Amino acid sequence: MIFDAGQCQLGEGALWHSDRNALIWFDILGRRMFMREPGGERREWRFEDHVSAAGIVDRDRLIVASSRALSLFDLRDGSSRPLVALEADNPVTRSNDGRADPQGGFWIGTIGLNAEDGAGSIWRWYRGELRRLFPDITITNAICFTPDGRHAHFADTARSIVWKVALDADGWPAGDPQPWLDLSAEGLNPDGAVIDAQGGLWTAQWGASRVARYDAEGRFDRAIDLPARHVSCPAFGGPELTRMFVTSATQGLDDPTPEDGCVMSVPADVAGQPEYRVRVD
């Protein structure tokens, strides 16, 4: 079940890179990015700022989101080139959850360094343009896209709500977000999320030691229990995209176990979607 035993303070941003048959993930508070092939050695890159999420450009390049910018990162030599500033004039925030969309854009959420109320926003970078989509979010999470590419989801973990919004042909929101899943009555905290090939949304639930699947109508289907308490972000991976990798965190735990903060891997009985690529040209 343990894919990588290195403990992250705040593991996040799980991303399967099919060109490299490898998982990429982050320790936001440790300011590190990792990559590991199943059975291989872990590679690590350190950054000056918090880094939290990435989108695949091609085999060798990623879009990486940091506290102050979106940058083009080269896995071959570790070089990085800024593409656009991201709330660089706001010392209160950093980046958080993010994912590439079907149209080749990159969605990225921000969050207050101390989860200040309403300090975060959801942004989209597309063909050189960075646009704020949704402001006044406390803890941005669960950015993911339906298999038909016509809808996006995102969450405010602090409110226990996952929203759904329609997209136009270029991937921009085509209306107002609507509440799609409200977990407040159950006391559950939706964190990172990914949608499988059948349209089911899998969300890591911070503090609940599980990843739960909800069908396309938002109805609870099933859950996978995990040994880490603060699970944070799932990703489908493996050659057939039938394994689920899940990051976790030791943040906020007075007595972390050896499993807390590790990356876990479990078989899934449904395949995921391949990760989309970000267009930089």
Score class of each variant (00 low, 15 high):
121 S>E: 07
206 W>C: 06
204 A>N: 06
123 W>P: 01
141 N>F: 05
198 Q>C: 13
254 D>N: 14
17 H>F: 11
186 E>T: 12
93 T>C: 11
258 P>M: 10
199 G>I: 13
183 L>V: 13
205 Q>S: 05
217 E>I: 00
49 D>R: 12
257 T>M: 05
174 A>Y: 04
272 G>W: 04
264 M>L: 15
222 R>K: 12
79 S>R: 08
176 D>W: 02
7 Q>P: 02
215 D>K: 05
187 G>H: 03
121 S>K: 10
88 A>W: 06
149 G>F: 09
250 T>K: 03
32 R>K: 14
197 A>T: 12
42 R>H: 04
162 V>G: 09
127 R>S: 05
24 I>W: 08
64 V>C: 04
114 N>F: 12
211 V>G: 00
168 D>E: 07
205 Q>D: 06
45 W>G: 10
108 I>G: 01
159 R>F: 00
266 V>H: 08
75 L>M: 07
179 P>F: 11
90 N>Q: 11
243 R>L: 15
184 S>E: 14
258 P>T: 06
69 A>T: 10
191 D>G: 02
254 D>I: 12
47 F>V: 10
275 E>I: 01
12 E>S: 08
269 D>G: 08
79 S>L: 05
163 W>C: 14
109 G>M: 13
116 E>Q: 15
166 A>V: 11
276 Y>E: 07
151 H>Y: 10
207 G>K: 02
138 T>L: 07
143 I>Y: 03
191 D>Y: 01
210 R>S: 03
252 G>I: 14
162 V>R: 03
183 L>F: 06
216 A>R: 12
10 L>S: 07
56 I>H: 01
159 R>H: 07
34 F>N: 01
168 D>Y: 04
134 F>A: 06
30 G>I: 09
